[in-house]
Nucleic acid binder design. Structure first.
Lengths: 322, 322
DNA sequence: GTGAAAGCGCTAACAC
DNA sequence: GTGTTAGCGCTTTCAC
């Protein structure tokens, strides 16, 4: 490449990384040579000297979960516009996998997007010494955070249930170690005048919800807020097959607003989470952290309740029914 | 690290890449030092000399499409067990983005998984000179392929419609450039005794299906096979809001078997595609290609029809109705 | 079994 | 404006 254009390698280098420092004519010549040799600077080699890999790591609990897949889509699309590639990794909800992943990725990326980590604060803080983080859906002091205001979403959801006459309400918690689950639980507990039952921790999947149908049915609650839509959908399935009508006997609210919730019957009432926006925002925060280690930033994204058909008024027969 | 353990760098190197060549005692000492310094060999630097990056590229049309997100999950999980990281990129169905992506990724990975590419054969063949490929859901001579037997799935679906008395059938095609779409179309055309209308190309999304509700309703067909579940779901939504009952007036079959199809009402009859398995298989083929450029392999994965509630018998009133 | 030296492809001073 | 040199962190002959 250097000899193909008749210049020294350093001139080739400058043509790509600091074009203004090279004579326009030379530049044209180098670019032309690059064009027909199909030459592109090797990013790995470049990383070795600059210390910038132009890669990002993105770690989620479950790639196939629609919430995360939208987040990934947003993050990846945004990263690409900034000339960054992104490694995507799935922990399968396993904290030890999460830790291992961060460690092996650390040297290969300029920063990592940690989404809904299940690791303890202590471990996250330790790992943070090796690589910049942006933590999504968890409050971590000293790091940039992208949070969704799921607490107020949960309060809104419960207020909606209360307005329909529900007093005995169940909260289906998410996985252990989930910040979101803790936020929801606290928010729900802060609502006065209701009789709250917290069930969990649970696997945040359709199957996890399905397994809760019997406990929910026998608990006597008339309203349910689930950790996410997948669980809510599983619960509705299970309840229906038990002969419990939704929303006739029990009202169900999910969280996330995934497609499956919009098309299931009854259509799922849910707290919408801006997953793609979270991905974009997280990339922004991470990239500004990479440029110059500034003060960690905190972004909070609004959620909002979408009322559909899985919630309805308490039936007289059940009011006060133990 | 070298001096921390009192040995030369080359010994450290050997400890990690060829442990059997180093004295057990020395090895223990080096490993211990690595442990408390948190040292890990820099993969980018290693790649520079070995030519193996231990990275894979994975390019899909739409990360948020459940079919692809499951494929990604399978590929990524399997890659991790082989000590590979994976870059995931989304083309948004845009061929030029696809090409650019492959080019920037080429030098950074040992190979790429091209899923449902929209590029022309010629361009793919040219790009293949730069980096090994495994192509998923498209037949490409000279490269390893992972195919799903969607042709026989489509035939099975249509046979099912025919057995219910349907003769006037519409096929909702997918995006231009989609091999799968072409396969389905050919398969459908090969079925004798039906009156087939092909509508498309279309955007392979819920919205794409929704937009087809009116054309389908006015076409007089009684059975529909859609390019994927997302479109089928959108179509059902649109049909329903037009007062057309599914499966009363029109029977609908999708392809993929995503969660949303299982929970929508009516539950969607569909051709199940083994997305996760495809991801795993593709990684296997790619890795064996990387080791030693062997003969490209071809893997064909079976599909199967899942009959649910969106298909039913033709109603007498409509039989023969124009 | 281990050290020394060269080199992977690039960038970053430093000369000229 | 461009060439020279050194060096990023590793692997890989080649000696010993």
């Amino acid at each position: 490449m250097a000899q193909a254009s008749g210049v020294h390698v350093s001139t080739v280098s400058r043509t790509f990384s600091a074009p203004h420092l090279v004579n326009p004519e030379t530049r044209t010549r180098v670019l032309a040579a690059a064009e027909d040799l199909g030459y592109r600077p090797n990013r790995a080699a470049r990383a070795l000297t600059t210390g910038r890999t132009h890669n990002l790591g993105l770690i989620v609990a479950d790639i196939a979960n629609p919430f995360f897949s939208h987040l990934i889509k947003g993050a990846q699309a945004h990263a690409r516009t900034r000339d960054y590639h992104v490694f995507v990794a799935d922990t399968d909800e396993d904290p030890s996998v999460e830790e291992e992943l961060i460690q092996t990725l650390a040297k290969q990326v300029d920063g990592v997007l940690l989404c809904s980590p299940r690791l303890s604060n202590r471990v996250i803080e330790k790992l943070h010494e090796d690589v910049p983080f942006v933590v999504v859906n968890r409050r971590m002091k000293g790091m940039s955070n992208v949070l969704m205001d799921v607490g107020s979403g949960a309060r809104e959801a419960i207020a909606h249930l209360v307005s329909l006459g529900h007093r005995r309400i169940a909260l289906l918690a998410g996985p252990a170690g989930s910040w979101t689950s803790k936020e929801i639980t606290e928010a729900a507990r802060s609502v006065p005048g209701i009789d709250l039952t917290v069930l969990g921790p649970n696997s945040p999947t359709e199957h996890g919800g399905l397994a809760l149908a019997r406990p929910v049915a026998s608990s006597g609650v008339t309203g349910v807020l689930a950790y996410n839509d997948l669980m809510a959908i599983g619960l509705v399935e299970g309840l229906t097959s038990l002969g419990v009508d939704v929303p006739g006997h029990v009202s169900v609210v999910g969280i996330d607003d995934i497609v499956a919730g919009r098309v299931s019957r009854p259509k799922l009432t849910t707290v919408a989470m801006p997953a793609e926006a979270a991905g974009r925002t997280a990339v922004d925060l991470l990239l500004q952290l990479v440029g110059a280690p500034v003060t960690p930033a905190l972004a909070t994204l609004a959620t909002n309740l979408i009322i559909r058909d899985s919630t309805g008024p308490v039936r007289d027969a059940l009011r006060g029914d133990p």
